[in-house]
Structure formats: C-alpha cells, structure tokens
Design a protein around this nucleic acid. Structure first.
Lengths: 163, 163
DNA sequence: CGATAATCGTTCGGGCCCAAATTATCGGCA
DNA sequence: TGCCGATAATTTGGGCCCGAACGATTATCG
C-alpha cells in the first residue's frame, strides 16, 4: 500500500478524501507495511529456496512443524502453523500424495489423526531447512532499526493484540 | 510457528533434529512472527470491521488504492497493493459485479484499463475507512517495544531486503 | 513502411484459504 | 446401557493467489 508513492503523498491524498477526519497515520503505516513485508518475504523465500522443491510456503510450514513435533495431531499442526484445519486438510492430502508424510488414526482416541514424516520427508527437510534459514538470516540482517529480538517482540505484541 | 510452545522448546527440538548445524534462531523468530502477526491482524480486521460489508482483506485494499488514486491503471493497483495482476483481475471482476468500481479502457493507450470507484464505492469507503483505521490504532497501541514509527521502519527494512 | 519486440490485461490451471456443514468418535450422566 | 453434548477431522462452496500462456495494442528500428 505504500508502494511507489511516499508516505506523505499517500497521507495528503487520504486526508483530502476524508475532509479533515482524524486518522492515525502511524497505525496505518504499521499495518500497511506489515502486509507488504510478510508478502514480500514470503514470495522471496518461495522463489529463492522453495521453488526448486516445488513447495509452497504453507506446505513448507506444515513439513517444518511435523518435522519438529512428529507425531503430531492435525489440530496441533494448524495451531502451530497459524491456519485453519480446513486449509490444513488439503495441504496434508497434497503432501501425503507426494510421499513426504503419512496420516495415521490414533489408537487411543479414534477422532485424532497423527501425522509423521516419511524418510523422504525427513531427507527433504534436512537439506532444505539450513538453506531456508540461511536466507532468513540474509533477509533479516538488513534490519538496521533496533535489533532482531526487538523486531521479534514488536511482532509478538501485534499477535497478542489480535489473537 | 511459535504457537503454544515456547521459543526455547522449539529451538532445542530444531537443534536436536539438525545435530549441531549452525542456525540463526533470531532470524527464525523474526520471519516466523512476521507471518503469524500478518495473518492474525488480517483475520482480526476481517472479522471486526470488514465482515459486515462482506469484504475480504484484498478486496478492501483494492478499494482503498482506487479510492485514493482514481483513476488508476490496473498495473498501478497491483503494484500499490502488493499482489499479482492475475489476482487483481479476479478481484476487480468481483468488485465490479457488486457495483463498487468500474473498468474503462484508456483512449490514449488501448492496452491500459483505468479503474474508478462508483458513488456506491465512494460511500462505502467513506464509512468504512474511519472504522478500519480506528481498529488499526486499537491494535497497534499494544506495541510497547519501541515506538510505532520504529516498528514501521523495521518492516520497511524487510520489504527493501526482498523486493 | 513493415517486421519485430515490448507491454498490458486477461485467462487458465493448480493450489491455498476460511466458515459452515458433515461424519465419526468420545465423555458424561442418568 | 443409552442418550447427548462436546470434540476432531474432513468436505463443500466461494474466493483469493500466482506463474505461464494468450491476444491485443503500442513502440522500435531497419
């Protein structure tokens, strides 16, 4: 939203549209930049690291969560990854079809489904995750305002304000 | 990704999976929280402000960009909103069908399409945007680490690192 | 001028995304 | 034991999302 125009250009345009209504431009800048940043980082990582394995961002997150916590229940993956169970079901089917993970009904509770990686899934993550993390480091080292833990904390503040 | 588990739990699990490979956990925390924050804020604003007008986040961003810069070319909306032209085409068709905006082929350059709001679209934004901004303010006031301009700058650093 | 390259918006195919409805299972309680 | 509300995962339906391919238009340059 703050694309090729400067913040001031946008602000004066907005102000003229609203005829002097009181607006919080600092809050606007934060949410606007939050989305541009998230999308930009996501697309960048998909192109630079994930594309060669034909993985989407969400598929990678699912594999990562399962890799760390296997065996893990479906609801746990959704909560950990931050998307709905409906979304997850489709992604699991995709990844199961590619042979990266398995679904198995729990014996102690017939409602639960336990997800685990296959050996191929584990091999993929062992190769991919270090590359992914190297690129994460590469991106975040451009943060010159404050330090990284502070950046992480600001984002956590936003999460707790909305969850 | 940093859901119900603490960062330390996740870190030790990751470390055990990678057997001592060097990882940048601070960078991990930033990108992980970036996505949780963006999704969380998006879902929150969709539920609290946008749902009553039956608008998705992206549809709202499109309306906002057109509202500020009309008449604006399709490519401009996509660049300003941060999504692909393919995505935009579908959203424009949806919003055009609901009578919030119009498409018009440019007379000076037959390749371009100029988008403008209808009176109904302008009425909608005039009502909706102040509500939206009030909720943005409500969310961002929970940022206690540093100040808002600093938060915006950190996010801009991430954008410029990946665009 | 005419061929060729560049640019713009759309369409297509496959995948993600969510709320609501659905199916199956579990737990409690008379 | 038999019902009944709660819980888990999936399916459904509508919409967003992108890269690649496409048709139309414009710009370039010999």
């Amino acid at each position: 939203m703050a694309g090729q125009h400067t913040l001031n250009e946008t602000e004066s345009e907005v102000a003229s549209r609203l005829g002097g209504l009181k607006l919080d431009f600092e809050a606007m800048a934060v949410t606007s930049n939050l989305f541009r940043a998230a999308n930009s980082v996501r697309n960048h990582l998909e192109r630079t690291v994930l594309a060669k394995s034909d993985l989407t961002w969400t598929a990678f997150v699912v594999l990562w969560v399962v890799w760390i916590w296997e065996p893990i229940e479906t609801r746990g993956i959704a909560a950990e990854g931050g998307f709905s169970k409906a979304t997850l079901s489709g992604v699991l089917t995709t990844l199961e079809g590619r042979g990266f993970l398995t679904r198995e009904r729990s014996t102690s509770d017939g409602r639960l489904v336990l997800v685990s990686l296959t050996p191929a899934g584990r091999r993929l993550m062992k190769k991919l995750f270090p590359e992914f993390n190297a690129e994460e480091r590469n991106i975040t080292r451009h943060i010159t305002t404050g330090d990284l833990p502070q950046a992480a904390q600001i984002l956590r503040d936003l999460i707790s304000a909305t969850e």
